[in-house]
């Protein structure tokens, strides 16, 4: 039995109307497929529309052209199969850590005591069992990301969308979070679409790395399978020869785009 493709973007184009009336095309003709249980990382220069593509998959944005299919069904409205880990803090600041995690179950109608018990288990599995009663502002940036991860995973989404989730964290915390993510992902192998600007992070985590060109009208310009063996340790895998070979190969393509993106961003700033 073959599982249907978890995410299939076909010719997805996203355009915004700017304040001055011009149309800005963020992403053009993107074709992307994520298989069931596959971990795909999208890498691209800053402002290339990686997050835009993720928002299309989440159903938060409607593509101007092209289609998005989720498990072979056209996406209409929000993607109910997906959990979304945002780049910015998205926890509810007025709820404690455990309430933040339990809410995804509670709104489904799970009785509160059961929701809390399961939330406690999830907090424990992201290493925050002792922090259930803390409010988000009492937690560090890394701890808040852990809570956010538990908040998303407790609903057991079939697809996990991650928008530079570890971007704001320091290098060590990023590695720890990366390993935690891989550990949790290995347990039940969800389809993951992981957006990052960090190529090393992408190679270390993913089964496939997709490269996007600099915006506007960003396109998908490369797709590399990452055959490094699993289980992986994010910190150690970076030392290996295969990792370096892949990195050199992909960076050769990405480098030009990063420079283009940089030049464009400085020009936009000057204009």
């Amino acid at each position: 039995m073959t599982e249907p493709t978890a995410v299939a973007l076909d010719g997805a184009t996203v355009a915004f109307r700017l304040a001055d009336g011009r149309v800005y095309t963020a992403v053009e003709q993107a074709n992307l497929a994520v298989d069931h249980g596959e971990f795909v990382a999208i890498v691209g220069p800053t402002g290339c529309g990686k997050s835009t593509l993720l928002n299309v998959t989440a159903g938060l944005l409607k593509p101007a052209a092209g289609t998005a299919r989720i498990f072979d069904k056209p996406l209409n409205g929000l993607n109910r199969d997906a959990g979304y880990l945002f780049q910015a803090d998205a926890l509810f600041p007025w709820k404690t850590a455990i309430d933040n995690v339990a809410i995804g179950l509670e709104i489904r109608g799970t009785p509160r005591t059961e929701a809390l018990a399961r939330a406690q288990k999830w907090l424990t599995s992201v290493g925050l069992g002792a922090f259930a009663g803390r409010y988000p502002h009492m937690l560090s940036g890394g701890q808040r990301k852990r809570v956010a991860l538990a908040q998303v995973l407790i609903r057991d989404p079939k697809i996990l969308l991650m928008d530079e989730p570890f971007g704001p964290l320091d290098a060590q915390t990023r590695q720890i979070m990366g390993n935690l993510l891989l550990e949790l992902w290995t347990a039940d192998r969800k389809a993951v679409l992981f957006v990052t600007h960090d190529l090393e992070e992408a190679i270390a985590l993913a089964d496939r790395v997709v490269i996007m060109s600099a915006g506007p009208s960003a396109r998908i310009i490369g797709d590399w399978p990452i055959t490094l063996p699993r289980p992986r340790d994010i910190a150690e895998i970076r030392m290996e020869k295969d990792f370096h070979a892949l990195h050199r190969e992909i960076w050769g393509v990405l480098k030009d785009e990063v420079m283009k993106g940089y030049v464009q961003s400085t020009q936009a700033g000057a204009a």
Partner: peptide, 10 residues
Amino acid sequence: TVLDNGRMLG
């Protein structure tokens, strides 16, 4: 973001 998070959580 908080609003989108609420929506994505269902």
